[in-house]
């Protein structure tokens, strides 16, 4: 399991407006590109050394490639990172203020504490 890498994907997409749009329009293509090109970039070493070992599990790749935030929650992705990025992706599709956020809560309503562990 690579919760850290899930979080790194959510974090790096969220901070880049172009990547937010690219991930919205083409989730599986963006995930494939990101895992091949970006997953091993050390964020504080943008053009220097890279890591060599970071990769998604099949379940993680699938959850990201299908915008499945319920599955991301269950895999232990950080709740704040998932929420923030998914608001950016989908809030615009809901007419009612907070409509997306409330649907998000309903879709997780089968959960009660303790939630999946987000420790990395």
């Amino acid at each position: 399991m690579s919760k850290y890498l899930l979080n790194k994907f959510l974090y790096t997409i969220d901070r880049d407006p172009e990547l937010v749009e690219r991930y919205r329009a083409d989730p599986s293509g963006t995930v494939a590109w990101w895992e091949a090109e970006q997953a091993n970039v050390i964020l504080n070493c943008p053009s220097g050394e890279r890591s060599t070992w970071l990769a998604f599990t099949d379940a993680e790749r699938q959850a990201l490639a299908t915008h499945d935030y319920v599955q991301l929650f269950e895999l232990g992705a950080h709740n704040f990172l998932t929420l923030t990025l998914f608001i950016a992706l989908f809030e615009r599709d809901y007419a009612e203020p907070l409509g997306f956020q409330r649907e998000y809560a309903v879709r997780l309503s089968h959960w009660s504490v303790p939630y999946p562990d987000i420790s990395t």
């Binding site: 709740n79 998000y104 997780l108």
Partner: peptide, 9 residues
């Protein structure tokens, strides 16, 4: 609660 079932109540 952020990113969980009790958010935005």
């Amino acid at each position: 609660e952020l990113g969980g079932p009790r958010q935005f109540g």
